[in-house]
Design a protein around this nucleic acid. Structure first.
Lengths: 156, 156
DNA sequence: TTGCTCCTCACGTCACGTGAGGTGGC
DNA sequence: TTGCTCCTCACGTCACGTGAGGTGGC
């Protein structure tokens, strides 16, 4: 199992867990945000010390990064993000349970199709947003051209 | 001056002002939002009746649309949006005062250059966001491909 | 006069920000 | 023992949402 604590006997290359300060800095969020995500069940600390201090793995930080991406790029709220994350977690589970017992083939297929539907929906949302930004860019380019024209008329 | 009120003597094709309910519906926002924008000085009603009822012109609604665009597409907050709107108002003013007295040529040039700088900044922000969405799309396409591959392995 | 729309408070919400006051490990 | 970081309340903020209670025009 290669189990060992995080004491002085640490020998090898298992990535160390970060406390909340370092984790927040690395993820580019505040400690408050990490505690809030935990409160909502979005990101659990990978470990908690007997003293109650939260520890975060790289995997947890990747989850935080995903949340920020869905927030800032798509403008999703945390409830919508929870849905996306749950679906992505499910997809990983399914993949991991590929040859496992207990998951019927038709059940597996069902879950994969759900995953595909949700991902395709997300893709459509992203594409629409990108198109909107394209229109916005065209508008801005028009404005810039007009300002430059006006400027060239003011040239000495 | 073509001045006349909005009484029963209305004759021609000047676009009518909308009350807050119709205005909100047309702009796709709530009445509360319109009142809030006014409170912040972002959008003034084009007129207010003696009874205190707000009236909105198409121009005011265009301003609201611009606010929503800057909010939803770029994620700007209302303070940042105020800066953009003020600059755009300035640009319109400058354009209108093209041959007017009272605005010196170097002052005019100065204002146009400020306007150009701000618009170019905005353009860079939009472009960055669009690039981010492009990366996101690539990632999603990868996920979709993998799910489809897994699905084809579950085919009868 | 009756509806409907408008008005102004004013408290609630979401996603945190920001101290207050206290505990814990190198 | 001294710092620094962590902890848990708990109130504040932004951009509105949502009634409460009252006025105004067809």
């Amino acid at each position: 199992m290669a189990a060992h604590g995080s004491g002085a006997m640490d020998t090898a290359s298992d990535p160390p867990l970060l406390n909340i300060g370092a984790a927040a800095a690395k993820a580019g969020v505040t400690e408050r945000a990490l505690r809030y995500y935990q409160e909502l069940g979005l990101v659990q600390p990978s470990a908690v010390t007997p003293g109650g201090m939260r520890r975060y793995s790289e995997e947890a930080l990747a989850r935080v990064a995903r949340i920020r991406e869905l927030q800032s790029l798509l403008g999703l709220n945390l409830e919508e993000i929870a849905v996306v994350l749950r679906s992505e977690d499910r997809a990983v589970e399914i993949r991991a349970a590929y040859y496992e017992e207990g998951v019927g083939s038709s059940e597996r297929r069902q879950l994969l199709e759900e995953s595909l539907a949700l991902t395709s929906d997300l893709r459509a949302t992203v594409e629409a947003k990108r198109a909107g930004l394209g229109e916005f860019l065209k508008d801005l380019d028009g404005r810039i051209t007009r300002i430059q024209a006006a400027l060239s008329g003011t040239e000495p």
